[in-house]
């Protein structure tokens, strides 16, 4: 087994060496690649892409009555800042409109399992698709891929019926057994997110996992490794960059989802995520600008943290196999 575990090692160290050697050359190549025009274009894109968010950020610190009467750029001629909007959104809890903290916890408890479950199932399935040759494998893969396009709106009602039939009794029993677990639980939301994430996750992870050199897996099998061992000790570590980068996107999608939450969460502070609360705050015509701007930024913090924390996985050879040829 030890030999199996080591097998990928030379590859990575080789890559590290060549990368280190490449830095010097990269510097030289870079100087020739960048032109002032390219830099200017990059800055223009960056500014264009940032302005809308920046406007919202600035607005979130402006006094409520100013937000709806003058544009945020008047701040530069008449600077007035306040933290009242954030205080309002975060701490002024009342029975009818609880503070966002609770929804924040819900969002986390929905997004974390909502990321882990589909990733595990999809990487298992992708492994099977990539490394087992069976009749109909191609067809089945096409079917899974094509399932991406089944519009959510069409799947919601049948799924909800299934949940009421099968999950509701189970959830009630759990609530009866452990009274401080509410009868409105996260389970339906998790399952729904898992199902809807699977086609894309299987498709993307399959692309990465099938790039793993077949000799590595063959060698492990010759050494007597079982499927579980091969999966956990070879496939999973080698595919980690891909899995991590997909995890980031899946986390963002679940965190930012509204439709699934609207249908499958109870809509009460028991399970409703931040987005649902934000949509409520927005009201049908978006009148609460001051709460909305601050609330939007509260919900933005976690995705940005996740992006920063896992960014190195993007750099470390996501889709790297595509450059192999």
């Amino acid at each position: 087994m030890s030999s199996v575990a080591i097998t990928p090692q030379p590859k990575t160290s080789e890559a590290a060496v060549s990368a280190a050697a490449g830095v010097g050359r990269a510097e030289r190549v870079k100087r020739r690649l960048t032109s002032p025009w390219a830099t200017a274009a990059a800055i223009v894109i960056a500014v264009l892409w940032t302005i809308p968010t920046f406007g919202l950020l600035l607005s979130s610190f402006r006094p409520a009555e100013q937000i709806s009467t003058s544009g945020w750029w008047t701040f530069f001629s008449d600077p007035q800042l306040t933290l009242a909007n954030y205080g309002d959104v975060l701490f002024s809890g009342s029975a009818s409109s609880p503070q966002l903290g609770e929804y924040f916890v819900n969002s986390l408890l929905i997004a974390i399992p909502g990321t882990i479950l589909p990733l595990v199932l999809a990487s298992l399935a992708a492994y099977a698709f990539a490394w087992v040759k069976f009749k109909g494998s191609g067809t089945l893969f096409v079917v899974v891929f094509a399932l991406q396009i089944v519009p959510l709106q069409m799947a919601l009602i049948p799924l909800l019926q299934l949940f009421v039939t099968f999950l509701q009794p189970f959830q009630n029993a759990l609530h009866d057994a452990v009274p401080f677990i509410s009868e409105r639980q996260f389970l339906p939301v998790w399952i729904a997110h898992t199902i809807f994430a699977l086609p894309l996750a299987i498709f993307l992870l399959h692309n990465f996992i099938s790039e793993i050199p077949g000799e590595v897996i063959e060698a492990a099998r010759v050494d007597g490794a079982g499927h579980g061992q091969i999966f956990f000790r070879i496939v999973l570590p080698l595919a980690m960059p891909a899995i991590a980068s997909f995890a980031i996107f899946q986390f963002l999608w679940v965190w930012n989802d509204l439709l699934v939450a609207l249908v499958f969460s109870s809509g009460t502070p028991d399970t409703a995520p931040l987005t649902q609360r934000l949509a409520e705050l927005a009201g049908s015509r978006g009148e609460n600008w001051e709460r909305l701007t601050a609330g939007a930024f509260v919900s933005l913090v976690v995705p940005l943290l996740v992006f920063f924390g896992l960014q190195r996985f993007f750099v470390r050879g996501l889709l790297a196999g595509s450059a192999k040829g």
Partner: peptide, 12 residues
């Protein structure tokens, strides 16, 4: 900077 919109929900 360019990634940030990805992190914002469609609602946001």
């Amino acid at each position: 900077l360019v990634f940030m919109p990805m992190a914002i929900s469609f609602v946001g």
